[in-house]
């Protein structure tokens, strides 16, 4: 039985925001009753790019941290299942400091996601792993995405994805989302994950 879920802090602005804040080209499709995928990660790692690719919608994407300050929800078909996909403002750890971080953590505490995709910047894997750890500690089903792999490679970083996968015990996918690389594998992993849960 799912618990009754109280929002940690009643996000008093959320309803009002949804109307007026379209300038960031947020997407608000209904994702009720769909299996839910939450995209989380530090700012500027490409969560919104992946959101756009998975849903076919467009939310604003930029090259600086903090582009997304609002939650976007969209629908995306992966395999035979339609998922509700939720893009979140960047978050550095499970202990939120700023308002947008709090928004994301609230989602983790209230949305009951079927899957959490932790999007990271492959260049800074070492700094990003603590959050993967925190997500796993929270008992959430996590897929780790190493995004912007191309930049990591051009810095001479070679990452053994297989080994990382077995050390962490969760699926790990390397991507260059902006160039559409690795997304098929990500979808495949999501599909498998869905099957294993079902």
């Amino acid at each position: 039985m799912k618990d009754t879920g109280t929002a940690i802090v009643k996000n008093k602005r959320s309803a009002a925001d949804r109307e007026g804040a379209g300038c960031h080209a947020q997407v608000q499709q209904s994702v009720d009753h769909l299996p839910k995928i939450l995209l989380v990660g530090t700012p500027n790692v490409g969560k919104s790019v992946i959101f756009n690719k998975l849903t076919g919608a467009y939310v604003t994407v930029s090259n600086y941290p903090g582009t997304t300050v609002e939650v976007s929800k969209g629908r995306g078909r992966i395999g035979d299942t339609v998922y509700g996909i939720i893009d979140t403002p960047g978050m550095y750890s499970m202990m939120p400091i700023t308002e947008e971080e709090l928004v994301t953590r609230d989602l983790l505490l209230t949305e009951d996601p079927d899957l959490v995709i932790h999007v990271t910047d492959a260049k800074n894997l070492e700094r990003m792993l603590p959050m993967t750890l925190q997500l796993c500690e929270s008992g959430l089903p996590v897929i780790l995405v190493l995004n912007v792999m191309d930049e990591a490679e051009s810095l001479g970083l070679e990452i053994d994805v297989r080994k990382l996968e077995s050390l962490l015990g969760i699926p790990v996918v390397a991507t260059v989302a902006a160039a559409n690389k690795g997304l098929d594998i990500l979808k495949e992993r999501i599909r498998k994950y869905g099957e294993s849960v079902a």
């Binding site: 894997l125 070492e126 990452i159 053994d160 080994k163």
Partner: peptide
């Protein structure tokens, strides 16, 4: 995290 990272990352010469 650092232990894991050291285990899976190999630093090759930069191409950038």
């Amino acid at each position: 995290a650092s232990r894991i990272a050291a285990d899976v990352i190999t630093q090759k010469p930069k191409k950038a």
